[in-house]
Every structure is written in C-alpha cells, then in structure tokens.
C-alpha cells in the first residue's frame, strides 16, 4: 500500500517537491503499479541467484596511466554558475 507519506518521503530522498494534487496523483498511480508488481510474489525464487547484468562479463580494467583531458573549458562552460575555474553553488547551510 503506497501512501501519501511514502511519496512525500521518497520526494525528499529524491530532491523533488510536489503539490498536494501531484502527491495524490502519484500515490494513486504508484499504488496501481505496485499492485501489479506484487504478482512477483507468485514466483518462487528462493534458490535463484540475482542478475545485475544481462550478459556476464568480468574483470574489465584500465591501465594506470594519465591522459590529460583537453576540453576542460567545455566542461566548465556548461556550468550554470562558474567562478575561479570552479562550479559555484549557493549557501549549503541555511542561516
């Protein structure tokens, strides 16, 4: 059972904010979706290993040598606010 409180907590965790109306809508649609997803309870999996990948690959590595990146300015020019060759963010701790 998905409640408004569930959605409210998930919103804080996800850095999202909703109006009361949106909260109600998401509560309803998520409840529908999880009612459907609960059909997974019908399938026995206690001895099944979970798969994180579609196809198993292992041990992919990179050698430890430096390749300086040449387009740093193109990264910084994407910043909504930049100063002193840095990204700028507003006050972290409110007064």
């Amino acid at each position: 059972m998905i409640t408004k409180e569930t959605i409210r907590n998930l919103a804080i965790l996800s850095r999202l904010e909703f109006t009361e109306d949106e909260l109600a809508k998401y509560t309803q649609s998520m409840d529908d979706i999880f009612n459907y997803a609960n059909l997974l309870k019908n399938i026995e999996t206690s001895h099944v290993a979970p798969s994180s990948h579609a196809i198993p690959i292992q041990n992919v590595f990179r050698e430890d040598f430096v390749i300086p990146y040449e387009n740093i300015d193109k990264i910084l020019s994407n910043a909504p606010e930049a100063e002193a060759h840095s990204f700028v963010v507003p006050q972290i701790l409110a007064d």
């Binding site: 100063e83 002193a84 840095s86 990204f87 700028v88 963010v89 507003p90 006050q91 972290i92 701790l93």
Partner: peptide, 12 residues
C-alpha cells in the same frame, strides 16, 4: 567553514 559561508566553489 561551511557555517556562515554565502556560497561555495566546487573543485572536482
């Protein structure tokens, strides 16, 4: 420090 700061620079 973070307390009292008006804004912060991010160095990655």
């Amino acid at each position: 420090n973070i307390k009292g700061a008006t804004h912060s620079f991010v160095d990655l």
